[in-house]
Simulated scan of single mutants.
Amino acid sequence: MSHYLAIAAVRGIRSREPTVSAASILDLFDGLVELGVLAGPDAEVDGIRRADLENIEARFPASLVQKLWRVGEQSPYARQLGLIIGSRVNLRAMGMISNVTRFADTLSEVIVISARHAAVMSEVENIRSVAQASGVKIVYEITPPEYRLDNAIDRSMAAGVSWARHLTGRPLMPLATTFRHTVTDQAPYRAIFGDAVSFGQAEDAILVAHEDLTLPVISSNPYVKAVLASRLAEQSNGLMRRTTLEGEVRRIIGNALQDPLLSSDYVANQLNMSRQTLHRKLRKESCTYQSLLLAVRKEKAHHYLKNGVSKMDELSALLGFSEPSAFFKAFRSWYDTTPGKFEGRGS
């Protein structure tokens, strides 16, 4: 039984609650200790102390991360907490992904490894790369939406830049960086990401130049990389086996709702199976691609309305509808009311 499953059995954690690697939580824990937000390594959050996090292959519920962020948000560092913690390179809290990328050949390979195995770090975080004319755009997503916190996104993106600089030994600067959230003080962001940073955008993303992608990793070691990559693949495959197909399809849909290419073919390709196989396996779990698409849209509509997004065109775009009228019709079928009236119900 894994460490996470042991905790689940003792503390009644739902077996399908998404999990996060102990290493990722350890880095956050250490950052809070360094800032004086936590009293020290023996401080407890939800009954967990630093010593409980030292097995880097252990897993804990994502709700523990939420609780740590909430503790941090009560501190004087609340608004910059994610940037501060993400900018550190904490060699005492390296998980399997960090250990493998230390021995990669180039920065491009680092990005590929990180995106492919992102779930090993956190099942609520997704990293994907999109080819651009000037380089590669790295998109960071946290789903389900209730797990997305501005500090969590700030930490992941700052860590991506800081780790790239550490691995290459070069003062790299993104071509452009975009954030979905807005801030009143942009200076701390510009110090990390450069002047080409903007807020209130459609996605959280970093654009890396083609020439930077070819930079060598200074600690590259093909043999050590191969040994560690084998173990990383085992962990990644183990997570896949513990996740129902329905859960995986929901995750993929949630991450790609705004992608015009989203379809059952798209999802099947992400899962390395044919569309026919996807439909057959979903039927065995008593669901369909279309029912899951509607369910994800319904859940996200509820979340966005509860968090102040109320414009019809914005909601329609966020949920991947071709036009606001299609969203309005779907919403009435889900809740038997309009988005405006639903917002006022406090549902």
Rank of each mutant, 00 (worst) to 15 (best):
G31Q: 05
F328M: 09
L172N: 04
R275I: 03
N126M: 12
N237G: 10
T19E: 12
S291H: 07
A158F: 10
S263P: 05
S87Q: 05
V71M: 09
N221T: 09
H117V: 00
F321C: 03
G135V: 04
A187P: 04
T178E: 09
V249L: 04
K300Y: 15
I85Q: 00
A164T: 00
M121D: 12
V296Y: 02
M94P: 00
S114L: 01
F179I: 08
S219F: 15
M240P: 01
S198G: 10
S2C: 04
K341V: 15
L271G: 06
R283M: 13
V161H: 00
R102K: 14
Y140I: 08
R275D: 04
R16I: 15
M1V: 14
A6H: 13
K298R: 11
V33K: 00
L293T: 01
T244L: 10
N237M: 13
Y223A: 14
G194F: 08
I253Y: 03
A187F: 11
G40I: 09
Q66G: 02
Q270V: 03
Q290P: 02
F29M: 00
R283F: 13
A23F: 01
D154R: 09
P41M: 02
R180D: 08
L239S: 06
A93N: 06
R92M: 09
S219K: 09
E57V: 11
K300M: 14
D259F: 06
T338C: 02
T337N: 07
H279G: 02
A119S: 06
L293K: 05
D46F: 10
R165C: 05
G40Y: 07
G346S: 13
S286A: 15
I48D: 01
E203P: 02
K298G: 03
G194Q: 07
V110F: 10
R59W: 03
S63G: 11
L261V: 09
S220Q: 14
N90E: 14
A78T: 10
A51K: 12
L319P: 04
R250A: 09
I142H: 03
S198L: 10
Q235D: 05
A131K: 07
S15P: 15
S122G: 07
E57W: 11
R345V: 15
Y266V: 04
P76Q: 07
N221Y: 10
A133P: 02
M240W: 12
D30P: 00
R88I: 07
V20E: 05
S21V: 03
V139K: 06
E34L: 12
L232H: 01
S75I: 11
D204G: 01
A43M: 06
S114Q: 03
V296E: 00
T277E: 12
Q201Y: 06
P61G: 05
V100I: 11
